[in-house]
Design a protein around this nucleic acid. Structure first.
Lengths: 238, 238
DNA sequence: AGGGTACAATGACATAAGTCAAAATCCTGG
DNA sequence: CCAGGATTTTGACTTATGTCATTGTACCCT
C-alpha cells in the first residue's frame, strides 16, 4: 500500500460518511485517522477474532463482508449479524474486554482497526466522536431489537422478506445495486440468522422465485417486485 | 422528598454498584449526582416513555420493574426486555433522538433521570464515566445477543429455563432471593419476550411444576431444583 | 364483601416449520 | 478440465408449537 502521500486515509475514504468518521470535521477525522491501522486484509474464511480473544481494537469493515457467530456450548451457533463496508465489529467485546463471538470474513475483505484505549482517549478531546460513537452503539441496540422482533414474532416468509429488503437497503446506501445482489452467505447462514433451517430458507427462495417476486440463481438474487416483497414483511397482506 | 441534607443521593444509594455510578470515585459520583433527577415515581401500568417521544433523558431504574415493548405496524408487539433496579432505560433512543419502544412500569416503580446532553458533557471530564457507559452499552448488546440465541436456536423449554435462571441471577445480584420470586409480568409478556404463546408458557410452567423443578402458584415461583432447571437450558441433558 | 374483568390452566385439534433422505448443482483446487 | 466435496433443491413425513375453546382463579374497585 502506498499511503504515505495521503494526509488522511479516512478523509479520502469513499465510505467516510457511513463509517466512524461520519459527521466529524476534517481536523477531527485527521486526528482519528492517525490512530488507525488502515486496510488490513482478511481473506475469505479467516477469523478476524474469536470468542475469548482479548479485546484490543474495534474494527470498521473497509471492504468485504463478515458474519458474527455466537457459539453455544452444545455446538449450536447463532449468527448475530452480517457486516458490510462501514459497519463496526467488536462492540460486544467492550463489556468484558474479551470477544464473545467469532467474526469471520465471508469474502476477501479488509478492515481498519483502532486500538480501543486510544479511541477512548480521543473521546476526551472530541465531543463529536463521543456522541457519534454513542449513536453507533445505540444503533446496534436498535438493530438487534428488530432482530428480536423478527425472531420472536414473525413467520418464516416475513423473516426472509425483511432480511432481503434490509440487505437491499444496505446495498443501496453503499451505492450498490439494491436490485441485483449476490448473497455472500450460505442458506444455512441465512437460516441461522433468521432462526430457520436451511431447507426452509431454500424453499422460501424457491417460492418467491416461482411467484415472480425474486429471480434466484444460486447466490445470485434479483428483486423483480420490490413492492410484493415489501408487503410480505408483515402479516396483513391478504 | 427530603433530600437537601444529603450531599449525594447516588453516593448513598444501595444499588450504587449496580447502576451508572459503579466504579466511579466519590467525587465523580457527587458530580454525576448533581445532574440527576432522583427517584421519580412511576406507578404501575404507567408509561415512562413511548415510541416517538423525543429523547431527553436516560433513566436508571431505582426501584420496581419495567418492560420495554417494540411495536410492529400490524399491532404485534415484541417485548425486548425487562428492567430491574440499577438497569438503564432509554439506550435505544440515542441513535435517533427519539424513543423507539415503549417503557412500561409493571409495578409501582421509581427512576432516576439524567438529561442526556448533560451526561455527554460530563464525559468530557470523566474518563471513567465514558468508559463505564461504553461498557453499559456493550453489555446491552451482549444481552441482546443472548436473546437472539435464545429465540433463534432454542426450543421452548430451554427458553423458559434460561429466562427463569436469568431472572433468579438478577435477583441474587440485588440481594433478593433467587429461589422464591414473584413474576411481575403476565404469561403473555413472558411469551412475547421468549417468542412463545402464553399457552405454551403456561404449559411449560405446569410441566416444570409437575416434574418437581418449580413450585408455581400463579405469579409466585419457587425454584425447587436449580440444577435440574439449569440443565434444561441446553439441548443435551438426556 | 362481592361482582366483574383480567389472567391462567388445560384440552382437542391444526399447521408451520423441522427432519431425513435423495438427487442436482455448484465450486474449487490440482 | 475434471473430480470430489460443499451447497442447494425438492419430496415425504414428523413434530413442536400455535390456535381455539372452555373453565377456573385471582385480584381489583366501588
Amino acid at each position: 500500500m502506498n499511503l504515505h502521500d495521503l494526509k488522511s486515509v479516512c478523509g479520502h475514504c469513499t465510505i467516510r460518511e457511513l463509517c466512524l468518521p461520519a459527521g466529524l470535521s476534517d481536523e477531527e477525522v485527521h486526528l482519528l485517522d492517525q490512530h488507525m491501522n488502515h486496510r488490513q486484509a482478511v481473506p475469505k474464511g479467516e477469523y478476524l477474532y474469536r470468542v475469548g480473544d482479548p479485546f484490543r481494537s474495534l474494527f470498521a469493515v473497509s471492504s468485504g463482508f463478515f458474519k458474527t457467530v455466537l457459539l453455544h456450548e452444545d455446538g449450536r451457533g447463532q449468527i448475530t449479524g452480517f457486516q458490510m463496508m462501514g459497519e463496526l465489529l467488536g462492540l460486544e467485546a467492550i463489556h468484558s474486554d474479551h470477544h464473545v463471538c467469532d467474526a469471520i470474513a465471508l469474502e476477501d475483505s479488509a478492515v481498519c482497526a483502532i486500538p480501543f484505549d486510544q479511541f477512548e482517549q480521543l473521546g476526551q478531546v472530541m465531543a463529536n466522536l463521543r456522541h457519534r460513537f454513542n449513536k453507533d452503539l445505540s444503533r446496534e441496540i436498535v438493530r438487534e431489537h428488530h432482530v428480536m422482533m423478527l425472531l420472536g414474532s414473525m413467520r418464516s416468509e416475513e423473516r426472509l422478506a425483511n432480511f432481503l429488503i434490509d440487505l437491499a437497503d444496505r446495498h443501496a446506501e453503499r451505492h450498490q445495486s439494491s436490485v441485483e445482489m449476490t448473497l455472500r452467505m450460505t442458506r444455512e447462514d441465512i437460516g441461522s440468522y433468521l432462526g430457520l433451517k436451511l431447507e426452509t430458507v431454500s424453499r422460501l427462495l424457491s417460492r418467491f422465485h416461482d411467484e415472480g417476486v425474486l429471480e434466484v440463481r444460486g447466490r445470485r438474487v434479483r428483486i423483480l417486485d420490490r413492492d410484493a416483497l415489501a408487503l410480505r414483511r408483515t402479516e396483513t397482506h391478504n
